[in-house]
Design a protein around this nucleic acid. Structure first.
Lengths: 362, 362
DNA sequence: CTCGTTGACAGGTACGTTTCTGCAAGGTCA
DNA sequence: TGACCTTGCAGAAACGTACCTGTCAACGAG
C-alpha cells in the first residue's frame, strides 16, 4: 500500500532531477548526463534537445550526488586561526585579508570555492564538509588538523613554511630572515645606531624567524638587542609595547615593527615622547595597509606580497588535487618588497658629517 | 567474472565506511548509524561498543553521502562583490572583514561553515556546491543570484536592506539616514557652516540612502550641497576626490566621508591646502578601522557595528534553515555608533562667541 | 494460555548522480 | 553475404548514508 502511495518517485517540489529531464526529453538518464557533461558520443541534435529541455525545467544537478559519485566536491578549506571564540585571521591584519582575497579569486578562477574553517580541530564542522584539499595559514608545530587531513589522503598546502616535520604537500613563504636583515641594513644605512624591534610573544614561524634574524644581526654588528614583545592578537597590547620600547633608558633611534598596526602605534608613541620622525627616530613596519602612504610622515613598510602568496598557495593545492601528486613537497619562496617612505629617509648631512663613531658605539 | 573481482565492495584504501564499522563491530549498518547519531533505542553497551570500534577504525562519515541523504549540507554561502576579476568585498574596507569575521564565528558556533562565493552568477561554481542558505552582502536592485536561490527554495538573508522587491527571507541593516542626519547635526553643533560630502558613484543602497539623506538635510537647513562622488572600489580615486572637494571655490568647513579610507585621504588633502583640523576643517568618516584613533589628529568615525550585523545575519539565516519559515521577511535594524574624536571637536570659543548667524547663513 | 507491548536489532530502499557495459542498427570491406 | 566496426543510445551498478519497516524474543496483563 505504502508503495503505491509514491509512484512518482523523486517528485520533490521545486527541484527537477535528471530523471525528470530524461522523461521530458524522451531519452534515458545516461543520455541526459552525457549531453550535459559533454561526454559520450551523441549527435549534436540530441545534445541540443536535452540541454533545451533541461533549461526549460530549470534543472540543476545535485552537488551532493555529484560529489558522492565523483569523489570531488570542488571545495577547498581555508583555515583561520582562532583566539578564544573569535576567528582572528583575515581581519586583524590587512595581510590576511589580502591573502584570502587572492586565494578566493584564484580558486574561483579554477572552479573551486573556499570554505572558511577554524584551525582548531572541532570535528563536528570539519567532518561535515567534503573537501578536496586545504590551505593552512601558518600552522603551529603540531597541528592536529593537518595530520588528520594528510591521513585521509587530502593534499594540504601551507602559507608559511611548516614548523617541525609537518607533512604538508607543499608550502609557500617569504624569506623572512633575508627581509629582516635587509631592513636592518637599510636602517643602518640611513644612520641608525641602535635599532629596536617590536615583536610578538606567539610561537608562529614568522615571529620566530624574524626575531632570531634580528638577534643574529645584532650579534654580528655588535649591538645590544633592544626589543619588546607582546601578544600580537591584542591590538591594545601593541600600543603599550610601543610605548614601553620608546620609554626605555636605552631608547633605540630606529625601530622595526613586525606587525601591521605597529606603525601607527610607534608614531603615536613617538609623538608622546616628542620624538621627530625620521630626525630622531627611524621607523619601518611590516604591513600591507595603504594608510602608511598618507600618515604624517609616511612610513616605510615591508610588504610580504600576500596576493602572490594567496594565489600561489591555491595554485599548488589545485595542482595537487587535479594533477600528478609529486611525492616530495613543493616549496616556493616569494620575494618581499620594501616600500621606502619618509620615515626611514637618510639622516640629514649633519649626522653624516659627525665624526666617525667610537668603537664602543659601533 | 568482473563481479567476483570486487567482492569486498567499498574497500577504498584509507577510508573506512559505515559498512566496515558494522562488520567489525558485529552489528548491522542501522545499528551503527543509530549508535553514532544518538537515535534509535539501543542499550548503552552497544552504543559504546560501536563508538569504540568506529574510533579504532578512524571512521569519518562521508559528508557527501550524509548531505545527499538528509538534504542538509551545513554550508552557508557568503557572497562577495567582485569588480572585474578580483573579489572586492571584505578586504577593501575593514567593515567587510569585521562582518565576515563575525559571520564566520556565529556560523561555526552553530555547526555551519561559510563558503565564499562571487556575487556574479557564475553557474559553474554556484551549482557545484550544496548550500543550505546564503548571506548576501548589499545586493543590487535585480540580483540574479538571489532570485535563483529563492526559486530553489533556499533562504537568503541580506546585509543591507534589499533594493526593489528582492524576495529575501530576512535582512539586517543600519538606519543609514538617521546616521547621516546625526553626523550632520553633530558637525553643525561643532560649528560647521558648510558641510561637504565625499560619496560614491555606485548604486548600492548604502551610498544611495546616505547621499539622499545628505541632500535632504541640506534642503532642510538651506545649505547648498557640496559633494564629490567617486567609484568607491578604486582607492586612488578617493584621494583625488578628496582633493577636488577641498579645492572647490565653495570649500566646505566640514566634511563627512562615506568610505573607510576617506579619513586619511581628507587629512592628507587638508595638509596639502594648509588647513588645520579641526580648526579650519571638521572631519568625520565612516570606518571600522582603529587607525583613526591614533592619526594626527584622531578622527571622529561612524561605526556601523559590522560585528553585530554579521552575527545577526547568520542567526536569522540559520533560524530560517532549521526553524519555522515565517512567510513575511524579518527585518532587523542595528544602531550605529558615533565615536567622537578631536577632528570634530567643537570650535574654539571665538567661534561660539561670535554673533548669532543671520538667517541666510543658517 | 493468549495477546498486546516493548526492546533490540536487521533488511532493504531511496537520495541523485556518473559511468561501465551492453545492444541494436547501419555502414564498410573482403 | 557474412565478419567487423562505428554510432546512438539504454540498463544498471555503484557512491555511503539515513531511516522506514519489519522480525524475533521476552514479558506482564487479562
Amino acid at each position: 500500500m505504502s508503495r503505491a502511495d509514491t509512484p512518482r518517485r523523486g517528485s520533490r517540489p521545486g527541484r527537477a532531477g535528471i530523471r525528470d529531464v530524461a522523461a521530458a526529453a524522451g531519452v534515458s538518464i545516461t543520455t541526459v548526463s552525457d549531453a550535459l557533461n559533454g561526454k559520450g558520443r551523441l549527435p549534436d541534435a540530441t545534445r541540443r534537445h536535452v540541454r533545451e529541455v533541461a533549461d526549460r525545467l530549470g534543472y540543476r544537478p545535485s552537488a551532493a550526488a555529484r560529489t558522492l559519485r565523483t569523489g570531488k566536491s570542488g571545495l577547498i578549506g581555508l583555515t583561520v586561526t582562532t583566539y578564544g571564540d573569535e576567528p582572528f585571521t583575515f581581519t586583524e591584519f590587512a595581510y590576511f585579508a589580502e591573502m584570502a582575497r587572492a586565494a578566493t579569486s584564484a580558486a574561483l578562477a579554477r572552479g573551486y570555492a573556499l570554505v572558511i574553517l577554524p584551525a582548531t580541530s572541532r570535528h563536528d564542522v570539519w567532518s561535515n564538509v567534503a573537501l578536496d584539499g586545504t590551505v593552512v595559514i601558518d600552522p603551529s608545530d603540531e597541528d592536529h588538523v593537518v595530520g588528520e587531513l594528510v591521513r585521509q589522503g587530502l593534499p594540504v598546502v601551507s602559507d608559511g613554511r611548516p614548523a617541525g616535520s609537518l607533512p604538508v604537500t607543499a608550502w609557500v613563504d617569504n624569506d623572512h630572515e633575508a627581509a629582516v636583515l635587509g631592513i636592518l641594513d637599510h636602517l643602518a644605512d640611513a644612520g641608525a645606531r641602535r635599532i629596536g624591534l617590536l615583536t610578538g610573544t606567539t610561537t608562529d614561524t614568522y615571529t620566530r624567524l624574524s626575531t632570531t634574524a634580528y638577534l643574529r644581526w645584532c650579534e654580528r654588528v655588535g649591538q645590544d638587542p633592544v626589543y619588546e614583545a607582546y601578544p600580537a592578537h591584542d591590538p591594545c597590547a601593541g600600543a603599550v609595547a610601543a610605548d614601553r620600547l620608546l620609554a626605555r633608558p636605552d631608547r633605540p633611534d630606529a625601530v622595526y615593527g613586525l606587525f601591521d598596526p605597529n606603525g601607527t602605534d610607534l608614531l603615536a608613541a613617538a609623538r608622546r615622547y616628542g620624538l621627530r620622525v625620521p630626525e630622531d627616530l627611524l621607523l619601518v613596519c611590516c604591513s600591507e595597509s595603504t594608510v602608511y602612504a598618507s600618515t604624517e610622515p609616511p612610513i616605510t613598510t615591508l610588504s610580504l606580497k600576500p596576493r602572490r602568496i594567496g594565489t600561489a598557495v591555491v595554485q599548488l593545492l589545485i595542482d595537487a588535487i587535479e594533477g600528478v601528486k609529486s611525492d616530495q613537497p613543493v616549496e616556493q619562496v616569494i620575494p618581499t618588497e620594501l616600500i621606502v617612505r619618509t620615515s626611514s629617509e637618510r639622516r640629514s648631512p649633519r649626522t653624516t658629517i659627525s665624526p666617525p663613531r667610537s668603537p664602543e658605539e659601533r
